[in-house]
Design a protein around this nucleic acid. Structure first.
Length: 584
RNA sequence: GCCCCUGUAGCUCAGCUGGAUAGAGCGGCUGCCUUCUAAGCAGCGGGUCGCAGGUUCGAGUCCUGCCGGGGGCGCCA
């Protein structure tokens, strides 16, 4: 448990509640919360009010008894009791100073490892073969990568799995269409993904309109699944072409360690999944399809809704694949399964998890979570879809972001009469890509995300560039002081006399709280808010408190604040998958 | 029709298992660069938290109903 104020105070309040009101009492929650207003101190406990009814006493009286039993030194000043029954706590500046001192040189800035490390499989990105990645894949990739980063920092063994859409009916269509359109792509090097995508759209249209074509497409799927050499060759070519193009996007995004394990991986396991479900008496054949009915799910007519695990034509579908993948991951020792997939799939995952529980493939101790996120919308609030033709390719979106960042750097240099930095391309990439990621991650993931180039690339406000800029400013100071290579072992203690120093320190000591919360709720926007608050507090400190010009021991104390701030931004942005620069 | 998400400042959004006078950013207006990077800082203005009830000492937060937006609802993935 990280030595954060909230953790420490929670423990003390818990002890005080037991001491004052008896330890057989059910502990009220929450024990300690941050105050809404600095006038009420830094933290408060509302437990006296919570307990007032069950104990039949006035909250104020209970608050006084609680305060009398409460030992918060040296973390906080003596508690203050306020009507109707708050017990307010103000952090002791000496404790804060000491705590910040402990964080100097700590790359994890007070984030402690999880008590029970587990094997965590994070399933994200999931592009489809034969289609370029579009903005819809952006959120899964960015959010999933951050989820994996956070789990990894907490000491979990993380497996980043790219569940590529490389199997299924669409290949039947595509291959059947290629039959008619000639041997595009069968010669190595001919054709590119844009061409394939156009063919995909044509195939889709024919599939919808032409019964004979539909029939032929289904045959092609069966041949593919049966391992027909000719069909497999085309399929492999399509997969290779798509993955090469996707890799360019991952390189640009700086997403690493993502292991492609497509739907086809699980193909050999599908028959056994169905057979085992049948053996467990979970399967009902309905209209020729093998179904597992799950309590609590109904269709549009109000009838029970099944999870179909084998279609009437004998083919398997993605429900079967997801079950096979889940089962295989658990068998390989996963303690936690995380699926970063859009919110539209939430019923699907509920049903898959439910069936997996019924089949015993998801034991009690293993946690499966669907980390759902909202849609990507256009400026008008309309949904962006590939089929509608007005969607943005991910490569184009990122390129545009990088170009805008580059333009800004060049213009700023010209305004100041300085030379354009030699590493302008690198700066543009880090800032542009960072801006795109941050715009997404700083938003609550459940809500629909309105994509706006102007907003996401705005270099002001609660954006990645603001944080990166703050970081670069700090690094500049640390460089001047000779602290950039490492901090001196022999340092005077941290001094927090100015209100800006105190405020900055209060924010620096809670990173452990924030990260553990994000690890639980997968809501990266809380981390973003924290980093923004740290950066704002730093800028206020920067305006009011000279660092390099101050005499010792103030100079070293302020350098220590700079150092911990830089480490916080570096760590936090790193968790979001965003790079930092020593100079901008 | 049923299920899930959602409605907070002009715009985009936060709001931590119910806590005190609901917060940011953008945009608008006013100041601050001979001083560690002005991508910054200080300040001003901006609200019936969709509507109506209910529970509670206390509701943006929980419950019910209604209105509006999005998504999903058996053989695509």
């Amino acid at each position: 448990m990280a030595a954060t104020p909230q953790n420490l105070l929670r423990a003390r309040v818990g002890e005080a509640v037991a001491a004052a009101f008896g330890d057989d009492l059910e502990m009220p929650e929450p024990l300690v919360v941050p105050t809404s207003d600095a006038r009420h101190g830094d933290y408060t406990t509302p437990v006296a009010m919570t307990l007032a009814r069950t104990l039949g006493r006035s909250p104020y009286e209970l608050a006084q008894r609680l305060a009398a039993a409460l030992q918060v030194e040296p973390v906080a000043d003596p508690p203050e009791v306020v009507r109707p029954g708050f017990v307010n706590l103000r952090l002791h500046s000496a404790w804060l100073a000491q705590r910040v001192g402990e964080l100097v040189g700590d790359e994890c800035v007070g984030v402690d490892p999880a008590p029970a490390p587990a094997r965590v499989v994070v399933d994200y990105s999931g592009p489809n073969v034969a289609k370029a990645m579009h903005v819809g894949h952006l959120r899964s990739t960015i959010i999933g990568d951050s989820v994996a980063n956070v789990a990894e920092l907490l000491g979990h063994e993380v497996e980043r799995v790219n569940h590529v859409g490389d199997w299924g009916t669409q290949f039947g269509m595509l291959i059947a269409h290629l039959d008619d359109r000639g041997p595009l792509g069968e010669e190595a090097g001919s054709g590119d993904l844009a061409q394939v995508e156009a063919l995909y759209r044509e195939a889709n249209a024919r599939f919808a309109a032409d019964e004979a074509f539909r029939e032929r497409a289904r045959r092609r799927v069966v041949e593919l699944q049966a391992g027909d050499a000719g069909v497999q060759k085309i399929w492999r070519w399509l997969v290779g072409l798509s993955m090469a193009e996707n890799q360019a996007v991952y390189d640009l995004l700086g997403v690493r360690g993502l292991v492609a394990r497509g739907e086809s991986t699980y193909q050999p396991m599908l028959a056994k999944v169905v057979a085992d479900l049948e053996a467990a008496n979970l399967v009902v054949v309905d209209d020729g399809a093998k179904c597992v009915f799950v309590d609590g799910f109904t269709n549009a007519e109000g009838e029970p809704l099944p999870l179909i695990v084998q279609k009437a034509d004998g083919g398997y579908n993605y429900e079967t694949t997801d079950l096979a993948a889940l089962r295989s991951r658990v068998e390989q020792g996963a303690g936690r399964l995380v699926y970063v997939v859009d919110a539209g799939q939430s019923q699907h995952f509920q049903m898959v998890f439910a069936v997996a529980r019924m089949a015993g493939w998801l034991p009690e101790g293993v946690e499966a979570t669907h980390v759902a996120f909202g849609l990507v919308l256009g400026e008008g609030g309309r949904r962006l879809r590939t089929r509608s033709g007005d969607s943005v390719r991910l490569v184009d979106l990122l390129d545009e972001a990088v170009q805008r960042a580059r333009r800004f750097v060049v213009e700023r240099a010209e305004e100041r009469g300085e030379a354009v930095p030699g590493d302008v391309d690198e700066v543009a990439r880090v800032v542009g890509v960072g801006a795109v990621k941050y715009a997404d991650l700083s938003q609550h993931r459940q809500s629909n995300y309105v994509l706006s180039f102007d907003r996401m690339l705005s270099l002001k406000g609660n954006t990645a560039p603001y944080l990166q800029y703050a970081y670069a400013r700090i690094r500049s100071i640390l460089r001047e002081a000779g602290w950039d290579g490492g901090v001196p072992d022999d340092r005077p203690p941290v001094i927090l006399d100015e209100p800006q120093e105190l405020d900055l320190a209060k924010r620096l000591v809670v990173t452990g709280d924030v990260v553990s919360r994000v690890a639980e709720d997968y809501l990266s926007n809380h981390l973003c808010t924290h980093l923004f608050e740290v950066a704002q507090a730093y800028h206020q400190f920067y305006e009011h408190c000279p660092v390099l010009r101050s005499p010792e021991p103030l100079r070293s104390s302020r350098l220590a604040l700079c150092e911990v701030t830089a480490a916080t931004l570096r760590l936090g942005l790193g968790l979001l998958g965003i790079e930092v620069l020593d100079r901008i």
